[in-house]
Simulated assay, not measured.
Amino acid sequence: MNNFIKYFLFSFLIYLSGGNIFAQSDTTKVHSKITDETSKGILKNTNQLKAKFPVTKANPPVNFNLNIDKKLNTNAVNKKLNSNPSKSHANFLMETLPEDRDIITKKYFQGKDVTHQKLVSNFSLGTVNSKTKTVKVECRDYSYVDGDRIRIYVNEKVVSDNIGLKANYYVYYINLDEGYNRIDFQALNQGFSGPNTAEVSLYDANGNLISSKEWNLATGQTATLGVIHR
């Protein structure tokens, strides 16, 4: 009797164990099936979102030529230039700034050749004496700084050209000849508001002030200072 009960209990345990194994196996199959179907659905949806673009191919012309090796016809260019000569004078000074509109050119003034014209004085700054051979000239625009320009001559020779007068002094040193020396200051323009206004001071080599003058000049006019060195 005891053996029968033991056998029955042993058989029952084996039966229960077998049911659990099959149940676990079925659950795995169901889970795997769901996963596979879900993956296929995702892939299917992903395929539906793909965009297709048309593929085009560029077909450049076979005979396209930039004529890179073609030489420039210089004869034709020169002929064109010679047929349209410039109407401006070759010695004409280009005006680049408003204050230079009435500037005196190197060889021409108001359309006339003044290359060999004798320098004429329009305004006297007086005559002074200097015991030293070297003197210092200082000049500046004492009025409104409006672009006044001057040229300095020593004994009728240009020593400093196209000087722009500012509020601070322009300095120039001159070596005097024995006897009388003529220093000319020529107005090249009248700036934005005429006339050409300037203050000039003259010092000897020892720093002594010899002369201090002012001028008001029209374009082309000259102020002259005489210096005697003995």
Rank of each mutant, 00 (worst) to 15 (best):
1 M>S: 15
1 M>E: 14
2 N>H: 04
3 N>M: 06
4 F>C: 12
5 I>S: 15
6 K>R: 01
7 Y>M: 14
12 F>P: 03
14 I>C: 10
15 Y>T: 14
18 G>V: 06
20 N>F: 07
24 Q>N: 08
24 Q>M: 04
27 T>K: 12
30 V>D: 12
30 V>K: 15
44 K>G: 15
47 N>L: 09
50 K>Q: 11
50 K>T: 12
54 P>Y: 10
56 T>A: 13
56 T>F: 09
58 A>L: 03
60 P>N: 04
60 P>V: 02
61 P>I: 13
62 V>T: 00
62 V>G: 00
63 N>Q: 03
75 N>F: 10
75 N>M: 11
76 A>D: 08
76 A>T: 11
80 K>F: 11
85 P>C: 06
85 P>H: 09
88 S>C: 02
91 N>Q: 04
91 N>V: 03
92 F>C: 11
92 F>E: 13
93 L>D: 09
95 E>A: 15
95 E>S: 15
96 T>F: 13
96 T>H: 12
100 D>W: 01
103 I>A: 14
107 K>D: 12
110 Q>I: 00
113 D>R: 07
113 D>E: 04
115 T>M: 11
115 T>C: 06
117 Q>S: 11
117 Q>V: 05
123 F>I: 04
123 F>H: 08
125 L>S: 08
127 T>R: 07
128 V>W: 02
128 V>T: 06
131 K>I: 06
133 K>A: 05
133 K>I: 03
135 V>T: 04
136 K>L: 05
138 E>R: 03
139 C>Y: 00
144 Y>K: 14
145 V>G: 09
149 R>L: 04
150 I>T: 14
151 R>F: 11
153 Y>M: 03
155 N>V: 07
155 N>T: 07
157 K>S: 15
157 K>Y: 11
158 V>T: 12
158 V>C: 11
166 K>C: 11
169 Y>Q: 01
170 Y>K: 10
170 Y>T: 11
171 V>T: 12
172 Y>M: 11
174 I>L: 05
177 D>C: 10
183 I>F: 06
185 F>V: 10
186 Q>P: 08
188 L>C: 07
189 N>S: 14
192 F>I: 01
195 P>C: 06
196 N>R: 04
198 A>F: 08
200 V>T: 01
201 S>W: 00
204 D>P: 02
205 A>G: 05
206 N>I: 00
207 G>F: 00
209 L>A: 03
211 S>R: 05
213 K>Y: 01
214 E>T: 14
217 L>E: 01
218 A>S: 15
218 A>C: 13
220 G>R: 02
223 A>F: 02
225 L>C: 06
226 G>K: 03
227 V>A: 08
